[in-house]
Amino acid sequence: MKPLFAATLSALLASACSLPLGPPGAWVDWTEIDGPLRPEVSPPPTESTPSTRLRIATFNVHYGNDVEGLIRVLKQNPRLATADVLLLQEIRSFPEESESRARRVATALGMGCAYAPARPHKTGTHGLAVLSRLPFESVEIMELPRATIAMGTERRIAMAVELRVGGEPLRIVNVHLDTRLNIGDRVGQLRPAIIDAPPRVIVGGDFNTNPFVWTANTIPDARTLAVADSDQARALDVYMGSLDFENPTASLGATVPLPLLTVHLDSIYTRGIAQLGDSGVERSVGISDHWPVWLDVTVDSLQSTVDGLCDARGVPRRSDSESPARRQAEESLSAHPDS
């Protein structure tokens, strides 16, 4: 029985080990990245009329292998075809193809393209893209804390673009987090990409907020689905709420087509922005293992952002501690009084 006992003990100890998260990188302008992971950025062919109203969509395209099919479904879907900003995850680029898949999609939709490879894949790369009808003021990449996961350690990135909306800057962050993380580690992986974000920001992507507790980041405790409070999507909303983010897409239900389970992996968080109210999950789009999620927003002025974080008496809404977003909004306003 000694070998069995030792094996059991080893398994229990393994389950108790905490996940080592590597250090985060810093935001790096895309022009400073060289080599095989150098991003590519191209402006939109025609500039849209500046507006304070935007439609943002996020879509994990599951490699985008069928580029023509992807273009077709995006063009045929009235919600997606009119999106002003498309955040894409899991899109690939190969040198043997005429141009990157992200750029092909962007060209077909008449949008600008910023593609950021997260890691090499075979002869090409695998990464994130932001397609936009508005020109990019800046494109930055950050390497997220790397999670050491058995059979799944991968380089993950966030990319941030700055657009000028209604004459003022709007930062949009696109992320794709690891799958087999518990919520505390998921927060740890996301945090560097958002903690210093300006008061007016949109954060979207595939947060992989699955409903499991993972033991040793390998075994999902499916039992917790039914009994324990293991919904990572809800927990991430609570965390983002502590930074004054809202998730207008939280109540949209499943974002992946799984039988029996309602799994909300993809979200769009906003801060300092008034939502128009329309949002949705396009479940008729069946080209990927995710469904696209979209949200219509109007963008406030910076002063409105500061005001929105206070109550009617001008007192900060957060009574427990100073709101980070409010502090940043005030700092930004004092730095740019014309805004």
Binding site: S15, A16, S18, N182, V213, V227
Partner: peptide, 11 residues
């Protein structure tokens, strides 16, 4: 008693 990374589950 499972001490998973960043999470404890007791049942």
């Amino acid at each position: 008693f499972t001490l998973a990374s960043s999470q404890t589950v007791l049942s």
